[in-house]
Design a protein around this nucleic acid. Structure first.
Lengths: 159, 159
DNA sequence: CAACCTATGTCAGAATCCTGACATGAGTCA
DNA sequence: TGACTCATGTCAGGATTCTGACATAGGTTG
């Protein structure tokens, strides 16, 4: 244990820090959403629908970082409780465009206020320059992590 | 819907970006750890034990961002499979200091190599200045989100 | 010392999310 | 037109994590 090959130093690892920050944010959000009987995925779904009405189940799932199966059961609950509506038949393909009902909009408004307070607190200790730097750094990370999990197989010109 | 009170703009929200980056990192790690039959929490536990031998179940749980109960079942499995050891009795209090066995160390070495490739990829598109900026920004966020969930009740000097 | 508070390990049950699988609708290509 | 590929919605089962609860060890305060 005296060299640089012993592991990944968690004290200086951006990945670990990323997980820590994300965990703290999730905990803080759950804390303010709990009194509203809402979870993070639940809130994300509503917020996505407010900003982009007509999103399909699969699109909502991608936006909330869960699988379409998970989002599907959530949507079924929200539909049954009258927070969102979906047409009985797909206007095109199989995708059912979902929309917020007035009730869903009201529910979202409460949640947005709660979540906004968390985001304000999170940003409170940062300068504008730091926020901008963090924004671009996170964008870079996401881009670098996207797609190339399996390096493209060799063109295989042999044989 | 024409002003700034309509919601939280997910396109410019640092919180949303944080979740997106964290999700991408988690997916990438799971992808490289799957061939080793290991999950992210599993790996985190081993890495923590390598860097700080003797950590207790609760300390490991906090370091891996899960509950004590979750870490407990993981530790029991790892112990049964011979990757970690814990004394039968606590040297002090109730905390049982856990340690990696040689087998656990070997298992960790493979995982570290895999995870390192992911972190390298994540950092590949960032300059050193950007990494430093991201590091400090994340630290700020974590600090701001820590603790003050329930603002301290007013000292109540009335009455 | 006794009462209290906090932290820990552990068990049991429940909630959450995911993987696997199937059928349908649309686009592509020959 | 028919075969192929891809994306979608949905159901069923399983894996993972969390919440609730209990007993114990140690420190603190009166």
């Amino acid at each position: 244990m005296s060299q640089g090959d012993a592991g990944i130093d968690l004290n200086t690892s951006l990945g670990y820090l990323l997980k820590e920050a994300s965990s703290a944010l999730r905990v803080a959000m759950e804390e303010v959403l709990r009194p509203l009987g809402m979870g993070v995925t639940h809130y994300a779904c509503l917020e996505l629908l407010a900003q982009r009405p007509g999103l399909s189940n699969s699109e909502l799932a991608r936006g909330a970082f869960v699988t379409r199966q998970t989002m599907n059961v959530l949507l079924q609950n929200l539909e049954r409780e009258g927070y969102v509506t979906r047409p009985a038949e797909a206007p095109v393909g199989k995708a059912l465009p979902a929309r917020l009902t007035p009730s869903g909009r009201r529910s979202l408004d409460q949640a947005t206020a709660a979540v906004r307070s968390v985001e304000v607190r999170m940003l409170s200790g940062m300068t504008e320059a730091e926020r901008s730097a963090a924004f671009h750094a996170l964008k870079s990370m996401i881009l670098s992590l996207a797609s190339p999990p399996t390096p493209p197989p060799p063109p295989a010109d042999r044989g």
